[in-house]
């Protein structure tokens, strides 16, 4: 896993359940207007908890995308 991997968010799929916000160990995420939002990406330790716990596939740590 390269350090350059970025968090990607797909607000259209987000249903605002807040699971990713709660279980992010570094408090990187927040809900903004009922949708997922990145608050402090520099704190991200790339654990992918948000990605695997999001029921809606609305957040993930970048793969080989542009």
């Amino acid at each position: 896993m390269s350090a350059s991997q970025k968090l990607h968010i797909n607000k259209d799929w987000c249903k605002g359940c807040g699971i990713c916000v709660e279980f992010c160990p570094k408090d990187v995420l927040q809900l903004k207007d009922g949708k997922i939002d990145i608050k402090a990406e520099d704190k991200c330790i790339q654990c992918r908890q948000c990605e695997i716990l999001c029921p809606d596939f609305a957040i993930f740590l970048g793969g080989d995308e542009e």
Partner: peptide, 13 residues
């Protein structure tokens, strides 16, 4: 997608 399940439904996970 997105699927029909409710917000916070565990099924998507």
């Amino acid at each position: 997608l997105p699927h029909i399940w409710c917000p916070g439904c565990g099924h998507g996970i």
